[in-house]
Amino acid sequence: MTTKRIVVISSGLSTPSSTRQLADRLAADADGILRERGFDVEVRTYELRDLAHDITNHLLMGFAPPKLEEVLDAVSKADGLIAVTPIFTTSYAGLFKSFIDVVDTQALTDLPVLIGATGGTPRHSLAIDYAIRPLFTYLHAIPVTTGVYAATSDWGDGGDGVRSLPDRIFRGAKEFADLVERTDRSELVNDPFALDRPAGHLIGGLTGE
């Protein structure tokens, strides 16, 4: 049975957070769809708030501490990425962008990405298309057509004639599953000049232990 590896990134700052809740719902639907199609699915979920100091250290020092290295490695080997961020001042969270900045520029090439975002008001739903989608497109990822935005009011009954949040989650997850099903990243080309240890290990005798 073929295993599909899905990495879920949540950049919510509170605990619990609606950002993590949306991430879990997207992952659960994608997992269910792929399993119905006969795939084994491995889902790894990471809270960026737990890696904030490591991300900052990577930006300052140029190498990833072990916990962050694990996440970066998982992203590079994934068959699909679910990325969810809160919207602050009409765009993605700074923590979310900082994480993307430390991801290898080649790691997202041809990687299906399901974008999710949360915010207090529906007015910021367009941030997915004018801010987040171009970011992943620039990095040669493949964002699915449907991005899922959840405002505070969306966690209710989904009335007033607007497509309900569960419907939008399922639609996005299905489009994502369609791409993941066709994705084969098992033969990623390794850079023959890449270091088998972070560059920081060459500076000052760092051992990473």
Rank of each mutant, 00 (worst) to 15 (best):
R44H: 06
T45F: 02
T45A: 15
T45C: 13
Y46A: 12
E47P: 08
L48A: 10
R49T: 12
R49G: 02
D50W: 05
D50K: 13
D50M: 11
D50N: 14
L51W: 09
A52N: 10
A52I: 12
H53I: 15
D54T: 03
I55P: 08
T56C: 07
T56I: 12
N57F: 12
N57I: 04
H58T: 15
L59F: 05
L60C: 01
L60I: 09
L60R: 08
M61A: 14
M61K: 14
G62W: 11
G62F: 11
F63L: 01
F63S: 13
P65Q: 12
P66M: 04
K67G: 00
L68W: 06
L68A: 10
L68T: 08
E69R: 15
E69N: 15
E70K: 12
E70S: 11
E70I: 05
V71M: 09
V71F: 04
L72C: 05
L72Q: 14
D73N: 13
A74T: 00
A74K: 01
S76R: 15
S76W: 04
S76Y: 07
K77H: 15
K77F: 07
A78I: 06
D79V: 05
G80L: 00
G80A: 01
L81V: 07
I82T: 03
A83V: 10
A83I: 06
V84Y: 03
T85L: 07
T85G: 08
I87V: 15
I87P: 10
I87T: 15
F88S: 10
F88C: 03
T89D: 13
T89A: 13
T90L: 14
T90H: 13
S91L: 07
Y92E: 08
Y92S: 03
Y92F: 13
G94W: 10
G94D: 11
L95N: 04
K97H: 03
S98D: 14
S98A: 15
F99T: 01
F99A: 01
I100F: 08
D101W: 03
V102R: 06
V102F: 03
V102P: 04
V103P: 00
D104F: 04
D104P: 03
T105M: 10
T105P: 00
A107T: 07
A107M: 06
A107W: 06
T109W: 03
D110R: 10
L111F: 01
P112Y: 01
P112Q: 02
V113D: 00
L114N: 00
I115T: 00
I115K: 00
G116T: 01
A117V: 00
A117G: 01
G119F: 09
G119Y: 10
G119E: 11
G119M: 09
G119P: 10
G119T: 10
G120D: 09
T121Q: 15
P122A: 13
P122L: 12
P122T: 13
H124T: 11
S125D: 12
S125W: 10
L126C: 05
L126N: 07
A127R: 04
A127V: 12
I128V: 14
I128Q: 05
D129P: 09
D129W: 09
Y130R: 04
Y130A: 11
A131Q: 10
A131C: 13
I132T: 11
I132Q: 06
P134C: 08
P134H: 06
L135W: 11
F136W: 10
F136D: 07
T137H: 04
Y138W: 14
Y138Q: 14
